[in-house]
């Protein structure tokens, strides 16, 4: 399981675009899966992911249960230069939250 893992984020500017890659550490239980004792695992999944660049919102992703475990996202932002701060925040259905931040290289 990915319980010990950390959220990870990389952002790289290549002139015209900034490429952002995010890997969140989250089990993403759908509420339909069984554990080793044949018990239903209660639903626990990320619902809302938001991304900011220098405090300006860039992107919001809403997830249902069908997002894979340890959600991965990659996308590009217009412009940007090394030194920009990219922040990602997520909230899951139980109210747990996480923030991960990086500096564009």
């Amino acid at each position: 399981m990915a319980v010990q893992a950390r959220d990870r984020i990389r952002a790289r500017a290549n002139g015209e675009f900034t490429t952002v890659r995010i890997l969140l550490a989250h089990p993403m239980h759908t509420g339909r899966g069984m554990d080793e004792n044949e018990q239903l695992v209660p639903a626990e999944y990320i619902q809302d992911i938001r991304c900011w660049r220098n405090k300006q919102e860039m992107l919001a992703v809403k997830c249902g249960t069908a997002t894979a475990r340890n959600p991965y996202f990659a996308f590009q932002l217009k412009g940007g230069e090394p030194g920009d701060i990219i922040t990602v925040r997520w909230v899951d259905n139980l109210g747990a939250k996480g923030t991960v931040e990086t500096t564009v290289t």
Binding site: L59, T65, A66, T67, A68, P71, Y72, F73, A74, K78
Partner: peptide
Amino acid sequence: EYMVMPFKSMIK
């Protein structure tokens, strides 16, 4: 407006 495709992710 700042986001550009491609967008990649993983689903079940």
